[in-house]
Design a binder for these strands. Sequence first.
DNA 1: CAGGATCCAAAAAGATACTG
DNA 2: CAGTATCTTTTTGGATCCTG
Lengths: 133, 133
Amino acid sequence: MTEQVNLAQLVARRSSVVDLEDVCPVRSVISQVGDKWSTLLLGSLAEKPYRFGELRRLVPDISQRMLTQTLRDLQRDGYVERQVFPTKPPSVEYRLTPLGRALVDALQSLVDFALANHAAVVEARQRFDAENN
Amino acid sequence: MTEQVNLAQLVARRSSVVDLEDVCPVRSVISQVGDKWSTLLLGSLAEKPYRFGELRRLVPDISQRMLTQTLRDLQRDGYVERQVFPTKPPSVEYRLTPLGRALVDALQSLVDFALANHAAVVEARQRFDAENN
DNA sequence: CAGGATCCAAAAAGATACTG
DNA sequence: CAGTATCTTTTTGGATCCTG
């Protein structure tokens, strides 16, 4: 049974001496998940394994540089597995690890929140921008 | 009853013609939450309302420029409310709105994931870095 | 006290060209 | 096909000085 810790307690815990990333598990996770492409790639791979080129087509705006780098970061954190098939030309398949799948599950409540409240956020933004010309 | 939509479906939905932020509610939310200070401030404000200077002391590494800016963004999105007391010198209090409270709640499962799996992530990183010299 | 304004350094991301 | 390398642009964040 894992202890329940909320955000507030977590803030209280953190130290200012060392780097935030190192001391705060939440930031360590979110800073990766929060980057520009990670959620999109995780979402794609949640469906099924894909190859490099397929991912590129699924997320057309991404540059191949960012695709390489983001996949690499996801792999580094243990969310994604990379399997090379020594064909000619080579093909590489990416798939979610169990940890990656757990992350996607944890993301779900945030996805639900976003879908349920996106309109409210957009409206809040418009009102704010209108009020502050 | 809100429909359940998972990340994969969401990816399938998005269009590449318009800006990601506009079309993808998840990215619209996460890109704000994923920045360097938002979670820390939300976590602080989840406890109780605070004034500008108090927040500054609670999150000592933050510069007042970033504190101002992050609070402003959170306010703009409707997560945080700003109340000015016309004392002299003035004091300003920040508090979570109901929407902000809902966001903090939605963040909880990610917090749980992070706490439960942070060690695994760190280990994965070390292994990855070792293998790729 | 709670910021606004400016300037500057660093990091992230895009474009393009090249390779096993 | 699946990248790497390099260059440039954009974004982010910090430091400092100023004000109602």
